[in-house]
Amino acid sequence: MMRKFYGTELSNGLMLGTAQYPSPAILADAFERSGAAVATVSLRRESGRDKAGQDFWELIQRLGVHVLPNTAGCHTVKEAVTTAHMAREIFGTKWIKLEVIGEEDLLHPDVFGLVEAARVLSEDGFEVFPYCTEDLVVADKLLNAGCEVLMPWGAPIGSGQGLNNLFGLRALRAHFPDVPLVIDAGLGLPSHAAQAMELGFDAVLLNTAVAKAGEPALMAEAFGLALKAGQMAALADPMEKRDMAAPSTPVIGKAFLS
């Protein structure tokens, strides 16, 4: 079962960022080989004002995938809202990945500003994908503010650490069984993406792990495969863990409880 993102069904759960690739040609290659369904694009406001980023945006649009503009680098509600409006105009989409950063070292979301910006944008007709933590209360407030998707971090942006708080992410998944959840940020390896899907998440969003790999397109393809593996595993209803060994072949002739 694939949860829909604001009514849109995606062909798969891979969302790829578009920054930091060695070249746009390699970026396009990474999308093709991974089959990613969504491209996130960050918008610097100074290049939005006079459409100076036009060439790059056209390149993103030519990828033929859903475009999810983001408000990366915004530190205040006002900045994020302005950037979202600019993105809507440029890309002609209501989708916005909302980032309001509160702390520089870990690029930790400012969850207070996030909720406020999410409310302002939702009321204005945006379909907000908020970059949040695994905090259940914040998640609840974001949903109340109008969000229909949540994007908790796996680990700090660009850290490549994978899923840092498995317990928290499991709790989030269990707590909001009907909400599409995307692991956004912190993934370093395809196995992290597989793990996210095994936990029942709907998608993963990553950038650095692919863009900064020696062979970005190859890594992108690896992520695509891992995602698929994780998704299949989730559908296959995995076994439960147990504390004792359980022989997979019956041991005949041995007492049960020796």
């Binding site: 610097r44 290049s47 790059f56």
Partner: peptide, 11 residues
């Protein structure tokens, strides 16, 4: 290195 062709000024 910014994907942008314009801008007369640095930010």
């Amino acid at each position: 290195m910014i994907e942008s062709s314009g801008g007369k000024y640095a930010t």
